[in-house]
Nucleic acid binder design. Sequence first.
DNA 1: CACCAGACCTGTCCGC
DNA 2: TGCGGACAGGTCTGGT
Length: 274
Amino acid sequence: MPELPEVEQVRRSLLPHIKNEIICKVEVRLPRMIVHPALAEFIAGIEGQVIRDVERRGKYLTLLLGNGQYILAHLRMTGALLVCSHDGAEPPFAKIRFVLANGKDMWFTDIRTFGTMSLCGGNDAWQDKGFAALGPEPLTSGFTEEYLQERLKKSHQVVKSFLLDQHKIAGLGNIYADEALAVAAIRPTRYSDTLTKRQVHALYEAVNQVIAQGLRNHGTTFRNYQDADGFMGNNKDYLLVYGRKGQACTRCGALLKQVRIAGRGSVYCPHCQK
DNA sequence: CACCAGACCTGTCCGC
DNA sequence: TGCGGACAGGTCTGGT
């Protein structure tokens, strides 16, 4: 599922249900999903705590607790955080349950079970490596055209791989990387250090544009993604290339091609994207 | 250090 | 209809 706009939509939809609520009980059905600390400490550190706020950084969510610690969640491919009433039916693929004092349950559901949770900010100073190393994210002051220009010039990766690297830019995944390249009219197989200044400018604008559009449309749902209320995003209707292999380019009519880059499907227009 | 393939899992879809 | 294989929005690790 989730790239920056989807995770942000989860955060926004979660907030009214769980902010300032107390977590009475935690049930972990699949201990493997708890990265840190050991299961017993994870549960003991959370039960009885109030959720002060929910924040997002890149594709990570942080649930800030009353004791100063925070739950770090990553939904990976198919994770979701759903809020249901306490006595309602359990959602499919339920893996972790947080029983709240307000009569609701927050469920971490996950089909492929790649999703992870940690409890951070304790005395052991443990850090999630990926979280600690995130680059600047689109639409923030840390993500400037100068920054992008400099990092692209120093990189020998193909530009599609560059965009997926969370250390360089936080929040893009396969969908928004393909879309940004389509908007900027850049072929995903181009090497990062060969882009012209004009293309770098176009890519900078395109990254911000596709992320802003995804946020406006409450995320992109292809199969599994839903927000805390179970709603799907409607950004799928606005995509230029992702998921449209073999269909006509909306600008020139050429048939969209798909190649594999870094093990990921990458769709582009062979006519528009140079 | 940079880069890539492989691994982690389960569900779905496509072609034979 | 049934089955095997490819593929799916992410990230880490280990080998080259």
